[in-house]
């Protein structure tokens, strides 16, 4: 491995970091908001809402993420919806995130001891209140590790946006391939940058886990 090429590759690839992080962040925020809504629908008493949430999860967890991106970027324009590569990618990633994180949030909520909601109801609290104050904070402890796992997967999956022409890190890496005919070094650099980013996520997750853990 030629270290000079490595150091030359870093700034070229790093130029795509903004796009990578921003796709990740938008999809995580939009997707998680959607996931929360889907989880609550799934747990609601209203059958149509349950069915919608189940159908959503079935569809968007059952189709490869790449096909979601292709659909958003190549198929939607034919239906009259023209999205920029960046927006198409965020749409696909958000749907994916919503579908997966909904399961995480739902399983976190149902893992909380039913005695907690019974005690809340016996005290006369409204469901909206005790979900927010009693159930959700406890479910959070259970949600953090799998939620982080999905977030890390999402971060890595943003490399698929290469295929809908978003100039993120993986696309810029491929440019080095074709311009310089170098492969080992740019692949190494790209891998290291992803590893650094996912490490940050892990550290954040450990800190969050510690913050929401029970005082014993």
């Amino acid at each position: 491995m030629d270290w000079d090429v490595v150091w030359e590759s870093v700034p070229l690839i790093w130029k795509g970091a903004g796009a990578t992080v921003s796709m990740f962040a938008w999809a995580l925020v939009i997707g998680t908001a959607g996931a929360l809504a889907l989880a609550l629908m799934r747990l609601s008493a209203a059958k149509p809402l349950q069915w919608f949430a189940i159908g959503f999860g079935w569809l968007f967890r059952g189709i490869p993420l790449l096909i979601l991106l292709f659909f958003a970027f190549f198929a939607l324009p034919e239906l009259g919806i023209l999205l920029s590569p960046f927006l198409a990618a965020i749409l696909g990633f958000s749907l994916w995130t919503a579908a997966y994180q909904a399961e995480v949030i739902r399983s976190g909520i149902i893992a909380v001891d039913p005695g907690q909601s019974e005690a809340s109801e016996a005290l006369g609290m409204t469901k909206a209140h005790y979900m927010r104050r009693i159930i959700f904070p406890q479910g959070l402890r259970i949600m953090v590790p799998p939620f982080t796992g999905n977030a890390i997967t999402l971060l890595k999956q943003t490399s698929l946006a290469t295929l809908v022409t978003v100039p993120e890190m993986a696309l810029l890496t491929q440019r080095i391939f074709s311009n310089n005919f170098k492969f080992v070094e740019p692949i190494f650099v790209l891998g290291m940058i992803y590893l650094a980013m996912t490490s940050v996520l892990l550290i954040v997750s450990v800190a969050v886990e510690r913050a929401v853990s029970l005082k014993v």
């Binding site: 005695g115 005690a119 109801e121 005290l123 006369g124 609290m125 406890q138 029970l214």
Partner: peptide, 20 residues
């Protein structure tokens, strides 16, 4: 129901305190 529950305190076998 909520108003009735305000009038009726309940203590459970397994305490059901809010651990957080």
């Amino acid at each position: 129901v909520r108003e009735i529950r305000e009038q009726v305190g309940m203590v459970f076998q397994r305490f059901n305190l809010f651990p957080h």
